[in-house]
Design a protein around this nucleic acid. Structure first.
Lengths: 183, 183
DNA sequence: CCCGAATGAGACGCCAGTGTCTCATTCGGG
DNA sequence: CCCGAATGAGACACTGGCGTCTCATTCGGG
């Protein structure tokens, strides 16, 4: 019988990404368990959201580990990073939206991951690969925004799922302009 | 005495952008009126949000009129568009987030504006200014995402307000890479 | 100056969602 | 096979927010 905590978290993440206002009852139903059982594992909605944060942070952290943003050409590192992040895009979209809400500062784990991503963009600037007029903080912010936009666009069928990694990384790196046209 | 409906809408937009879950009471207080008066002007929360949508759509529409996206060089048109949109960024961020929520299709007026923006990107592609591997729909989506990210980043003090227009349009058009480095 | 319209404050009733509890049922290891 | 642990369904009280209403007050045009 024993409920798989991770499976519940994944179901909750999937639902809350699409519908941030879903009730505990809906979350329980989605996870295929009873509301009482949900409460036995997460003392309340806040606890669930916090666990979800940790779950997302852990998955994002593992994605970053896999992407190795500290290694090799910075642009390639960004491409790897986006590709590795993509499976977690839904959770990131949820957490990113959530972070706008709770004014009381973010999770420390999140800050650590944030610093890692910002570091990649800074490295790219120092190595001369990235332009200097776009700050690492803004590039990081833009990455989150694009990943979240991509997740939503895919969810609503406005963009094909298999294209999204390419769409995000190419736009982030190269922008909309055709290269030949530029000075 | 007579309450200024537009002033109320602007106050509500400002608050709801920062705190989408704000109660009717908070909205009324922020607008400097009583909750009863708020209910006299907007029959309920739904009506308020709908009015806010129309308000945002109208302002975005006027911003687009001012930007004249149909005229001149496509890249310059994008820059003009972002610059003109920037004062409405907060409202766009709110509506963009809201649109993820209400699954029941979007407002028609919004679709019209959306088509106008998508049309600019399509024109840019046809004129050879924009690359073809990023679809107009995705570029439009990315524009919303970047504008929203920018609004939040400014609100949280992570990016300076006066830089944001440049940050958004330059990233959207040129990406993070330094041009000289590219083939 | 005066009267009517609009406002602000507050009191309801109502409802959805939450958190807690109970109890019958089911699963699974010993 | 059997017993304990875990589950699901539901009842219950409680809370926050919503929408309606009343009433005293205030504003402003005639």
């Amino acid at each position: 019988m024993s409920v798989d905590r991770d499976q519940v978290l994944r179901a909750a993440a999937g639902l809350l990404t699409r519908k941030p206002t879903a009730s505990m009852d809906e979350i329980a139903k989605t996870a295929g368990i009873g509301r009482a059982t949900l409460h036995r594992h997460f003392s309340g909605r806040d606890a669930l959201v916090r666990a979800l944060e940790n779950h997302g942070i852990e998955r994002l952290g593992r994605a970053l580990d896999e992407a190795r943003p500290e290694e090799g050409d910075a642009a390639d590192a960004v491409r790897r990073m986006v590709a590795c992040i993509e499976p977690v895009a839904g959770i990131i979209a949820f957490l990113y939206g959530e972070n706008q809400l709770y004014e009381g500062g973010m999770n420390e784990g999140w800050n650590r991951l944030d610093a890692r991503i910002t570091g990649l963009f800074r490295r790219g600037q120092e190595e001369g690969a990235f332009r200097l007029d776009l700050s690492p903080a803004w590039l990081t912010e833009a990455l989150y925004g694009l990943v979240a936009s991509g997740a939503w666009a895919v969810q609503d069928g406005r963009v094909a799922a298999r294209d999204i990694s390419h769409m995000v990384s190419e736009l982030l790196l190269g922008g909309a302009l055709r290269r030949r046209m530029e000075p």
